[in-house]
Design a protein around this nucleic acid. Structure first.
Length: 817
DNA sequence: TATAAGATTCTTTTT
DNA sequence: GAATCTTATA
């Protein structure tokens, strides 16, 4: 441990001591960056009571932890225990004297017995517990907790000893010693009974946060002087890990108020991941850290939602408006956060960029003009983590310039740009192939990483890179299906195999081939709108549950089925099946928890080989990755930067092997460059031969998932009473769904029709003409009011929403090139 | 019916 | 920004 770190840790100790003094009403302290003022409060403080409390508290935590451990023991591996905090408090209040549930959660987390994650619901904070690694809960398991509480208690003993001296000079002298020598030394030297001081403090905790990090990661995690740090992180270099550990360091080791810390992530999945990992690292104390999406932050700051946008705005404009409201809000109000961490900084857009700038209090135009010194805004500390090579959303305004401008914006030296280069994900050959690809595709000026800043693999072995070429996409699909089946037969989980393409419809042939080979697959696009909670049956059942959130539920499935039958809704809805499987493990809970589980249920069971676009694969990783490169003109001399970065993202998703297949005639131009091909040869890639001799079928079969914009419901169909009744009748009596003349018909009448403007029309054109589109399932989906849509349909009702029957199609289509 | 010009689509997140 | 589909015009 270097001297600097040691000095900082003493500061943390000081702050702990000050907090204790304040907590027991002995002294008050005011704190700014450099000084702390201590004021005595009064004689006869509650110090001794507090010590007694501390002992009781430990006994209480132990009792409650016992109970949690008992319930955890009943869980199977991977199962989750779910409850709300108020419920837990109420349950244990009587026996444990008002013990704070958070403390007990912290305890089981701290002991490594469980992973605690936090969620929000209508019924308040809800916690999810999952069994930790540790299986046996012997006496030894409690030792770290005892050490922790023992350390806190020792500090109290020391302070009480100091305060017991009558003369002020003595007290000052002892305080000086307290801050000069270690706690252990102090106890030995001054305490009448130093036995209590034999235990160390809590090295396990510090080790968990700071140990196991690379030197560079540690630098970012522990730097609390730099106002702005840009972390240029390569793929698989531990971006999120660095962010999570920095937050943990701030909150758990540096005593920063968690409410002053903000983590911005790019979507809900990323938010959930940061929250989970933070909870796993520091437990309950991480709960007060804000981990939000940009829109979540905008909602929190302004109290508005995109629905407050002026009438006439729709879709994207509403969301942009919301971000802009937050920017305006921050111009007039001080930033509520002091430590801001931004993930995936390369993909932030203009308004989001402004938001970050204001949050970090770096806005030069609107420099604070506080009349009083005390009102001066505290300085912000910004850490932005991103990789310009992985910029995927330039077409939406996420320009690479924002990350390039970082240095100028924040007036920082080059040293403050930290490069995280080791790749912990991919085997060496994969990293080398990806490096060679991006270096051959982009000129040095288009990249922030210099020639001496190459990503390198720290994994052992070599890994495999295969290349291949095809004329017919069908042949590539056949080859991939064969290899996937082979890998699965050899024991690779299907979910660890991904097939990635530029566009969704490039994967149609792959769907067909996988189906023929009997390999299960999943489409990786999760339309938020398709959430089971958004289905008519799911929403209706959830609403019944939340009417009495505290009501006990013995068997989740029975309760759900009972409510569904009372509402006389069909069980054939796609969403309903998903809800049943998402709640299958819930027993002996309350209705509120069940409702929450419905809210977070995923559309489909995530099983089988993953089919995804390059874009949707952002942030994911797989053992084996197959890539289709097509859809570009070859004779373009300089490859388009967007497409290069997208393909680079695809290449770097792979851990063990990557197979890069190019279509002759329109693959990414770099793949044809002699220089690049030589580089691949040096790396040791193998050529994958595809079954190009196989005769082509005349038709292929694949699944197609429309979204609500593909459906056009004309006035009599849905918006007016007859149509609404037809849809709701369908939700009760579920029969086959047929598509005739673009009209979606149930035996009870028309329930919708395909939109002529929807994107699906184009894709289905030929299949529709030949009548080879069949509905294989459907969900009755809630659609929020969309004024543009209503106007087009000639409707002016006041409802906030309506329902549509959203089918899932199987298409038999002519084979494309 | 060729060809140019113009329009649209592709990649997608946010509740 | 490129590919692809639609429309206008000789």
């Amino acid at each position: 441990m270097d001297a600097d770190l040691r000095r900082r840790l003493r500061q943390a100790d000081l702050l702990t001591a000050l907090r204790i003094l304040q907590a027991v009403d002995v002294a008050r302290h005011r704190r700014d960056d450099f000084t702390a003022t201590i004021q005595p409060v009064q004689e006869g403080s509650r110090m001794s009571n507090w010590l007694l409390d501390a002992e009781e508290r430990f006994a209480g935590v132990r009792a409650m932890a016992d109970e949690l451990i008992r319930r955890l023991g009943e869980l199977g591996p991977g199962e989750t225990l779910e409850f709300n905090a108020a419920d837990l408090d109420a349950q244990y209040e009587a026996e444990l004297g008002g013990l704070d549930a958070l403390e007990a959660l912290y305890a089981v987390q701290f002991l490594g017995l469980a992973n605690v994650a936090r969620g929000e619901s209508e019924v308040g904070g809800v916690f999810y517990l999952r069994r930790g690694e540790q299986r046996r809960y012997g006496k030894a398991a409690y030792r770290p907790l005892e050490v922790h509480y023992g350390e806190r208690a020792r500090r109290l003993h020391v302070i009480r000893h100091i305060l017991s001296h009558e003369k002020e000079e003595d007290r000052i002298d002892l305080f000086r010693w307290y801050f000069t020598i270690s706690l252990e030394q102090f106890c030995k030297r001054f305490l009448p009974n130093p036995e209590a001081a034999t235990s160390p403090q809590i090295p396990e905790f510090r080790e968990r946060i700071l140990g196991g990090l690379s030197e560079t990661q540690l630098k970012v995690v522990t730097d609390d002087e730099s106002r702005a740090i840009l972390v240029l992180a390569g793929p698989g270099s531990g971006k999120t890990r660095t962010i999570v550990h920095r937050v943990a360091n701030l909150v758990a080791l540096r005593d920063v108020n968690p409410e002053r810390v903000l983590v911005l992530a790019y979507n809900r999945t990323a938010v959930a991941e940061v929250r989970e990992r933070l909870a796993a690292l520091i437990g309950a104390s991480g709960i007060h850290v804000d981990v939000l999406t940009f829109h979540g932050l905008a909602r929190k700051l302004t109290g508005l939602t995109e629905k407050n946008a002026p009438a006439g705005m729709q879709g994207d404009d509403r969301f942009n408006w919301l971000i802009q409201q937050a920017v305006d809000h921050l111009r007039d109000n001080p930033a509520p956060y002091q430590y801001v961490l931004v993930d995936e900084y390369q993909d932030i857009k203009g308004a989001e960029y402004d938001l970050v700038t204001l949050l970090a209090s770096f806005d030069r135009e609107g420099a604070p003009t506080g009349e009083e010194e005390d009102d001066r805004e505290q300085p912000g500390y910004l850490v932005a983590v991103g990789d310009d090579d992985q910029n995927l959303y330039a077409f939406m305004g996420a320009k690479i310039e924002f990350i390039q401008r970082f240095r100028d914006d924040y007036d920082i030296t080059d040293e403050k740009v930290v490069a995280l280069l080791p790749n912990y994900r991919s085997r060496p050959r994969i990293v080398q192939a990806a490096n060679a690809f991006i270096e051959a595709s982009l000129p040095a000026r288009a990249r922030l990483k210099g020639p001496d800043q190459r990503v390198y693999s720290v994994r052992d072995g070599e890994g495999q890179v295969y290349i291949g070429k095809y004329q017919q996409r069908y042949h590539a699909a056949l080859g991939i299906a064969q290899r996937a089946a082979q890998l699965i037969a050899q024991g690779t989980p299907a979910e660890e195999i991904a097939i990635l393409a530029r566009n969704w419809d490039h994967l149609n042939e792959v769907q067909h081939a996988l189906h023929e080979a009997g390999v299960a697959y999943q489409m990786y696009n999760v339309h938020d709108q398709l959430r089971p909670a958004n289905s008519y049956v799911g929403g209706a059942v959830r609403d019944v549950l939340t009417e009495e959130p505290e009501l006990a539920v013995e068997n989740a499935r029975e309760t759900l089925e009972r409510i569904r039958q009372q509402l006389s809704l069909s069980d054939q809805d796609r969403g309903w099946q998903a809800i049943l499987s998402a709640t299958a493990d819930l027993h002996n809970t309350i209705q509120g928890a069940l409702a929450l589980r419905i809210n977070s249920a995923k559309p489909l069971a995530r099983r089988g080989v993953v089919l995804s676009t390059f874009h949707s694969a952002k942030g994911s990783e797989f053992d084996h990755v197959f890539i289709l490169s097509e859809g570009m003109r070859e004779h373009g001399r300089t490859p388009p930067e967007d497409e290069t970065r997208a393909l680079y993202v695809a290449l770097t998703r792979a851990r063990e092997s990557v197979t890069l297949l190019r279509r002759e005639g329109d693959c990414h131009p770099t793949l044809l460059q002699p220089g690049y091909q030589h580089a691949l040869k040096d790396i040791g890639v193998e050529v994958m031969s595809l079954p190009t001799g196989t005769p082509l079928p005349s038709e292929i079969r694949y699944q197609l998932f429309p979204d609500p914009s593909d459906l056009y419901i004309s006035a009599p169909d849905v918006l007016f009473p007859a149509g609404r009744e037809a849809v709701l009748r369908y939700a009760r009596n579920w029969d086959s769904l047929q598509l005739r003349n673009l009209q979606l018909r149930s035996p009870h009448g028309a329930v919708g029709r395909l939109s002529r403007n929807g994107r699906i029309m184009l894709k289905l054109k030929h299949a529709l003409e030949r009548g080879q589109v069949t509905a294989t399932g459907a969900t009755v989906l809630r659609c929020e009011r969309d004024d543009e849509w209503y106007t087009r349909a000639g409707y002016t009702g006041l409802e906030t929403h309506h329902y549509v029957v959203l089918p899932q199609f199987e298409v038999i289509a002519l084979l494309e090139g």
